[in-house]
Write a protein that binds this DNA or RNA. Structure first.
Lengths: 170, 170
DNA sequence: TAAAACTTTCAGTAAATATTGAAAGTTTAG
DNA sequence: CTAAACTTTCAATATTTACTGAAAGTTTTA
């Protein structure tokens, strides 16, 4: 397969699977487009490449910046804003995980805590069964939360180690 | 909080977060309703409890059965079908993971393999950068795939061990 | 075999979500 | 300061997704 053909198909693929990772289709396409672009792109470039409106392009780029997946990249002598994607895919995975943890896992844990607090006799079978079920959901979700923390820590350590390497020769 | 109030709120909560786990709102509500019900429920019960149509109730129950999260439960002397949910939440997590692996991870891996196969000179920087990025996505997604396999294996072993216990006394 | 009891399907409709594009807002250059 | 270059907003609209309910299909009973 030719490079440019593959890149285009990757944009489509990433768009189609975006939904599965909690990211909407166009946002995922913009992300993919920036991932496969050697240079950073302007809003106009994105509009043209994906055939989408200015408003849509702008909105999705903002959202990608909110997820920390895309940065502004100012070019010498250009007034326009350009955008480039974080290309270290482990970093990307970490940031998506971090964001979803914040948006989904943590509020869920908080709600589960509320709903487990029943002021009826826990020796009654029906009460016990309910509380046990909620506790086990709580335990699973907490474990996922910890798993994400581990991933984040691992990435942070990688960064720290890379940073320390700079001083190794001293 | 009172048990019944909590149960109702749990149905709403599970519905709201369902989307995040790749499950649609009503399907998640039906699931939650069956999870908190002591007895198994008929289509009519579900329609009434959730104020949804017969078609909708039927469709979502079928879908939950396709995900292996809900079973038919025939009652003595009743002609109607009744449904009950798998209540072991680790088992539930495993089955959701299994299904998402099948629907999302595996097709994604297959597509990534296609898109990594570029017939241009890999010494060219642009080609190399693209291939490296795709390989690192591939590596991450494969790791998630393996993680799911581990989860499934763990559950299967639990089942096997429980099964073996039955013969312990022999 | 007929009709009652139930389940499934699906065309039409409703609801939710995403997109457009023109107008308003902001920044920079001259 | 003000016009040009650019970014952001948001009401209107389009698209996608989910839901309804009546009709068709199936199974059971008598």
């Amino acid at each position: 397969m030719k490079l440019n053909e593959a890149k285009q198909q990757f944009v489509q693929l990433w768009g189609a699977f975006g939904g599965a990772w909690g990211i909407n289709k166009t946002m995922a396409q913009v992300h993919a487009l920036l991932l496969v672009s050697t240079d950073s792109l302007s809003t106009e470039d994105i509009m043209n490449e994906l055939s989408i409106s200015r408003g849509n392009a702008n909105m999705n780029v903002r959202e990608l910046m909110a997820w920390n997946l895309v940065y502004k990249d100012f070019k010498q002598g250009e007034r326009k804003e350009f955008f480039k994607a974080e290309k270290d895919m482990w970093e990307v995975a970490t940031r998506i995980a971090k964001e979803r943890k914040r948006r989904e896992i943590q509020p869920l844990i908080a709600s589960l805590n509320m709903l487990t607090d029943i002021d009826e006799d826990k020796r009654v079978k029906e009460v016990k069964e309910y509380v046990d079920m909620l506790n086990s959901i709580h335990s699973i979700v907490s474990k996922m939360d910890s798993a994400v923390d581990t991933l984040i820590k691992t990435e942070e350590n990688k960064f720290f180690n890379a940073f320390m390497k700079l001083f190794k020769s001293i």
